[in-house]
Computed example of a mutant assay.
Amino acid sequence: MTAHAMPPVVDTGTWRRELDALRVREKAATRELDAIAAQRRRLPMVEMPDYTLEGAEGPVRLVDVFDGRSQLIVYNHMWFEDKEWQCGGCTSYTAQFTRFGFLDPYDARFVIVTQGPIDQALAYKKRVGNQMTWYSTANSPFGADVDAPKGGGFALNVFLRDGDTVYRTWHSSGRGTEQLSHTFPLVDVLPYGRQEDWQDSPEGWPQSPAYSGWLDSKDIARLYGEDA
């Protein structure tokens, strides 16, 4: 039982009519997202320099981060020097991605790039149980050039490879990254939603300050990390 307010109870016919009315808006949103994706596919692109990053096996050219594929998604993970625990939002967001075979038919790869030194980044990856492949741009201007500078925020960037030439095709940050996750879409279909005070919810719904429900880095390590 819950002490919070609850949706009104109605008969099945009334519930179905309300659901059908909502479905009209949901389908319109789906069509709008399709139109946005179509516009995204028509974006121009910009050629990138020949960057060298650091991977688990040593220096690696950006073109080789593609690992032979033609398309690459990069999550630029926030990094703070001399901190044991890195950004909880980035740590939690990337923890949800564990299997990437579904990208193989699309000739694509998804990796993490961070400003942290590679040895520290790999140690952190292990500590929190992250399953993605990590690279470091600590000794390269790559991060700053794709809107993820040292000490700056997170970002998502997408690249296209043509031979040895790499192009940047798309970028987003902030809430623009939500559509590339399943965390928030799942929470948003719950009756109480995210339960954050900025959301438009009926009176009496449980609400707390923004980010209250987010898992922090220590939570991720406890659930998935090397000592879990």
Rank of each mutant, 00 (worst) to 15 (best):
T2I: 11
A3L: 15
H4G: 00
P7Y: 04
R17F: 09
L22C: 15
K27M: 12
A29N: 13
L33R: 13
Q39K: 14
R40Y: 09
M45P: 01
V46L: 08
V46S: 11
R61W: 10
G68Q: 06
S70A: 12
V74A: 05
H77Q: 13
M78G: 04
E81L: 07
G89N: 06
Y93Q: 00
Q96R: 11
Y106P: 05
A108K: 01
I112V: 14
G116I: 01
P117F: 06
I118E: 00
Q120S: 14
R127S: 08
R127K: 15
V128R: 03
Q131K: 15
T133N: 06
W134L: 02
S136Y: 04
N139Y: 07
F142N: 00
G143E: 00
P149W: 02
G151P: 11
N157C: 12
F159W: 11
G163T: 09
V166C: 10
G174Y: 07
G174D: 10
G174R: 13
R175M: 14
T183Y: 12
P185T: 04
P185G: 05
V187E: 08
D188K: 10
Y192C: 05
S201K: 15
S201F: 10
P202C: 09
G204F: 11
S212H: 13
G213E: 09
L215Y: 04
S217Y: 01
D219F: 02
A221C: 08
A221Y: 00
Y224I: 03
G225I: 03
D227W: 07
